[in-house]
Simulated scan of single mutants.
Amino acid sequence: MTEKVLVTYGTTNGSTAEIAEAVATVLRKDGLSVEARPARDVASVAPYDAVVVGGGLYAGRWHKDARRFVRRHRRTLAGRPVWFFSSGPLDPSASQRDIPPVRGVRRAMTRLDAREHITFGGCLEEGARGRVAGMILRSGKGGDFRDFAAIETWAAGIAHELNRS
């Protein structure tokens, strides 16, 4: 059984962190030892047996902290089970169909032989930081499109896979 799992993420306004925490909660309920941490704060992945990496999507790119995490730890990650998730569409599309990973995430998945990627809806609400976020909110396109039932189902699949290995 996998002893320790890292759920790490890159986020600007916190909604990807909330998805990561939901994933970590499910993994813990299934008996796994889990740490959820911002990607920029992870110095080493050596203590972990498996890793879940999430990043918010901004202008078609994964959050810079998630990209840097994968690049910085690529050698160690290559020897572990790895899953990726993205959060971002500010509409219900992620709940309606499979949204493939953006190009950079797809490349990282291939290099690391990642097990799976999923895209969840994003969340952008009043008070969000950033000029672009402000423009999106002023245009009326914000909101919370995260589907926590889908997030929990995906996380349960990871827990099942880790518990049977």
Rank of each mutant, 00 (worst) to 15 (best):
T2R: 01
T2N: 03
V7T: 09
Y9Q: 06
G10N: 09
T11Q: 03
T11D: 07
N13D: 14
G14P: 14
G14V: 12
T16I: 05
T16N: 11
A17S: 15
E18Q: 15
E18G: 08
I19W: 03
A20I: 04
A20M: 11
A22C: 12
A24Y: 05
L27I: 04
L27A: 07
R28N: 07
K29P: 02
K29N: 15
D30G: 03
E35H: 02
A36C: 15
R37L: 15
P38C: 10
A39R: 04
A39T: 03
A39D: 09
R40P: 07
D41G: 02
V45P: 01
P47Y: 02
P47M: 08
Y48D: 08
V53F: 02
L57K: 04
L57F: 04
A59Q: 12
A59T: 06
R61I: 01
D65H: 10
A66P: 06
R68C: 04
F69A: 07
F69D: 11
V70K: 12
R72G: 09
R72H: 14
R72M: 09
T76R: 07
A78I: 00
V82S: 01
W83D: 09
F85Y: 14
S86N: 10
G88P: 05
G88M: 06
P89R: 05
L90Y: 12
L90C: 12
A94M: 04
Q96P: 03
R97T: 09
I99K: 05
P101C: 03
V102I: 12
V102R: 11
V105E: 08
V105T: 08
V105P: 05
A108M: 06
A108V: 00
R111A: 14
R111M: 11
D113W: 00
R115M: 12
H117L: 00
T119M: 09
T119L: 07
L124M: 13
E125N: 02
E125P: 00
G127H: 05
R129E: 15
R129F: 07
G130L: 01
R131A: 14
A133I: 05
G134P: 01
R138V: 01
S139N: 08
G140R: 04
G142E: 06
G143E: 08
G143R: 08
D144W: 02
F145P: 10
F145S: 06
R146Q: 07
R146G: 02
F148S: 13
I151V: 15
I151H: 12
T153M: 11
T153K: 15
A155M: 12
A155I: 10
G157Q: 00
H160E: 15
L162A: 08
L162Q: 08
N163H: 02
N163V: 00
N163G: 15
R164P: 03
S165E: 13
